[in-house]
């Protein structure tokens, strides 16, 4: 779960590749493609987590990949 109110501008400055980061305004528009429930943004792992579907969807190069086939099951170990 990500704690909401970081300053988006600060983030852009801190980030070495801000263009590669996901836009927070987009996050508000996204839900789980299967359950249509809210997603939690895991910034450290660059994943969008659907608790209900028990799936974590990857964010690659700032683009969320919301395909069930690309999601990691929450019970699986992360590979990194």
């Amino acid at each position: 779960m990500n704690e909401g109110d970081e300053n988006a501008n600060d983030e852009a400055i801190e980030s070495p590749v801000s263009a590669e980061r996901i836009d927070r305004r987009l996050l508000e528009l996204l839900v789980c493609p299967i359950t249509k429930t809210t997603l939690e943004y895991d910034e450290a792992n660059q994943e969008l987590v659907s608790r209900k579907a028990r799936l974590a969807f990857p964010i690659r190069r700032g683009v969320p990949h919301l395909l069930p086939g690309e999601a990691r099951h929450l019970d699986d170990k992360r590979q990194s």
Binding site: L26, L29, C32, P33, P64, H65, L66, L67, P68
Partner: peptide, 17 residues
């Protein structure tokens, strides 16, 4: 413009958005 990888038959957007 924002981009998202999504399946047209399982859209990752809320109802009535």
């Amino acid at each position: 413009m924002e981009t998202a990888i999504a399946d047209a038959e399982a859209l990752p957007f809320p109802d009535q958005s």
